[in-house]
Design a protein around this nucleic acid. Structure first.
Lengths: 211, 211
DNA sequence: TAGATTGTTAATCGATTAACAATC
DNA sequence: TAGATTGTTAATCGATTAACAATC
């Protein structure tokens, strides 16, 4: 019964969701598939097809109701649920993420930070509780943490992954440049290293020049 | 003559490139497509096909020479070129990125940081030269900056994009959750917002549960 | 030589684009 | 009503997977 939503569609619906946020802030009430397409650089057929996966949300002949559409995405993709998250590695990058305010607004609550350096944990002043890395398994389990961000040196990335997975994490954002492999297949991973994106962009630039 | 390399292939070759780095550090000299596939979670046919775009690099019956393969990727995708980069928005996240050491090693040199807050620019001590945001166009042009990272509040993202593009930037890593649109079509953009990835992971988790 | 593994062509699969009927 | 725009089916396109011959 449940139709599988293609991965590219999920990614586009996430973009659309954030765009709808923007529209709501600007008091826009209605939007058409072609307007959405123009803004998010996708074609209108694709937009309609993606929205089609949500069920019955459009108004034939009159575009989409912005609020209704946003609610439909949230309901389908589970954005209404509050989820606990943690950050592993409290260096410059990790502590920047600990302090992101956007998360709260969108239902993500960072409830723990971890670092291998115990001195750092004891001296740092943060609004989030900090723990030594060897407690990852225990704390993830105790606080029912679903999402984890890895911001440790790349050597430690796989070990941290294993610990998060053992604690029962459901999704991981890996900010190190190495590919991590969760030992359980129902744990989802996103690899986003800026270095990787520099490489990707360099490749596009190079191939574009050689055309 | 020049065959177009598919985007997914480019992304996978970037991953492979970083993996080869790791192998070199561990003194591995040869690797087969199936070993690569297992490690990077792709199938071996795909690995061979991707590598096929690089031209003639494999040893029939004996796998790939790690160093030779890495060089072939670098040559094809332009990873040997030194490229100048900049960071716009020197908050917590921006200054974390300014201080990444990995960039240097891989041929990326961060030559400028920008911030709208002039006080911050004058008081902060960094190894990278800082400038007020209104100088973006001028500095990007003067230093031949090819890559830019946007780490500003989301309201400012599009304006900063326009300035970077006007200065002649070639690629942008956008860390804000809004979709930016470069006014020139030969400027490449990567959107990587952790919030977006939290959403994406939440969607996968939710759809996985409802199965 | 025999086993291993690449390189390449063919088959399959899935996603995007196009087209258009339905309808507000 | 007429114009606009959705929803959905069909056609196209591109990427992944499979198969296997070439060959070290």
């Amino acid at each position: 019964m449940q139709t599988d939503i293609p991965k590219p569609t999920i990614a586009r619906l996430c973009l659309l969701y954030r765009y709808l946020d923007e529209l709501i802030r600007n008091d826009v009430q209605t939007i058409s598939s072609s307007q959405i397409g123009r803004r998010l650089s996708m074609n209108s057929h694709n937009v309609r097809k993606d929205i089609g996966y949500l069920g019955d949300v459009g108004n034939l002949g009159a575009g989409y109701d912005v609020i209704k559409l946003k609610k439909a995405i949230a309901a389908k993709l589970g954005f209404n649920q509050q989820r606990n998250a943690c950050v592993v590695g409290i260096g410059r990058l990790g502590s920047a993420i600990l302090n992101f305010e956007q998360f709260q607004v969108h239902g993500y609550k960072i409830v723990a930070g971890f670092d291998a350096n115990i001195n750092k944990i004891e001296t740092m002043r943060t609004s989030v509780a900090l723990f030594p890395s060897h407690m990852i398994v225990e704390i993830v389990r105790r606080f029912d943490i679903q999402l984890g961000v890895i911001a440790v040196p790349e050597k430690a990335a796989q070990k941290v992954t294993d610990q998060l997975v053992e604690g029962g994490i459901k999704g991981i954002v890996n900010l190190t440049p190495v590919v991590i492999k969760p030992k359980q297949s129902d744990v989802f991973v996103r690899n986003l290293s800026i270095l990787g994106d520099f490489h990707y962009l360099s490749a596009l630039i190079t191939l574009n020049q050689n055309k």
